[in-house]
């Protein structure tokens, strides 16, 4: 049975939207692509297209991406294309289809913490913060680890323009599919040294998480042995589970291989 919506509003300010959201049975609409797939009733659907949180711009050291920006808006934005050699452009370009990316929003993708998400994994390897209207700003990893934030509106992503080199790797059987598992890795290039490694693994099939142990290993060395060790540490640290399509054991092994490839790509 499809989604049922009893009433629809398009408020013109965040404040108004937030107030409406407090009503019983009220929910935010993003691009409405994924909401579609659930069988439930929304009493009041709140469309954010007129509240002015769709823009992408720069503030100080940050690229700010409004929650109502579509994945395609973000993909093709100059700031995104230029940052980290267009790393996020690449991450987004592999998400499903052009037609989906033209509708699916940044907020609709980050807020629900989809486990399968390539986008979240990609962001997690950067210095990313999420901003909510009431709850304010928090690190993406804290948001992902914490409870779902209900009855609040995500307003923007803040991506710090740390001079990072990043690499995103995924494994899919069909190219037009969800990832079996995905890995994003980045590091700050400091002369010929790499520091502040970030290693994110998603679609395990749980939502993306950082492997602190792998990061620690890489922060001390990136020779072949260290890379091998980082992969092993990550495999032990993070949980991999089975779903009806792929086994946890398989995901784990593939994640290890992808991690090594990603690190090697970053160090060039």
């Amino acid at each position: 049975m499809p989604l049922k919506i009893l009433d629809y509003v398009r408020p013109s300010s965040l404040e108004q939207a937030y107030d409406l959201l407090q009503e019983d049975g009220a929910e935010i609409l993003g691009g409405t692509t994924y909401a579609r797939l659930s069988d439930r009733t929304i009493k009041l659907a709140i469309d954010l297209q007129n509240v002015g949180i769709g823009a992408i711009y720069e503030v100080g050291d940050y690229i700010v991406v409004g929650a109502m920006a579509t994945l395609a808006n973000m993909q093709f934005h100059d700031l995104i294309m230029k940052y980290a050699d267009g790393y996020l452009y690449d991450v987004i370009s592999y998400i499903w289809s052009v037609q989906l990316r033209n509708v699916a929003t940044v907020g609709g993708t980050v807020v629900p913490k989809w486990g399968f998400s390539d986008f979240i994994t990609g962001l997690l390897a950067l210095d990313t913060e999420v901003e909510f209207y009431k709850a304010g700003k928090m690190k993406l990893e804290d948001y992902l680890k914490g409870p779902m934030i209900k009855k609040d509106i995500m307003t923007a992503l803040y991506i710090k323009k740390t001079p990072r080199k990043a690499s995103f790797k995924f494994m899919r059987n069909s190219e037009y599919d969800f990832s079996v598992v995905n890995v994003a890795v980045s590091a700050v290039k400091d002369g010929d040294k790499f520091t502040d490694w970030r290693v994110a693994v998603g679609a395990r099939p749980g939502v993306a998480a950082l492997s602190y142990k792998a990061m620690e290993v890489l922060n001390s060395s990136v020779d072949d042995e260290a890379i091998e060790k980082a992969a092993e540490e990550m495999k032990n640290e993070l949980k991999f589970a089975s779903d009806f399509r792929w086994s946890g054991e398989y995901r784990k092994e593939v994640a290890g291989a992808l991690l090594k490839r990603a690190v090697k790509e970053v160090i060039g």
Partner: peptide, 10 residues
Amino acid sequence: ILSCATLAST
């Protein structure tokens, strides 16, 4: 866009 995945109201 995917018209099956986009609410008409929006």
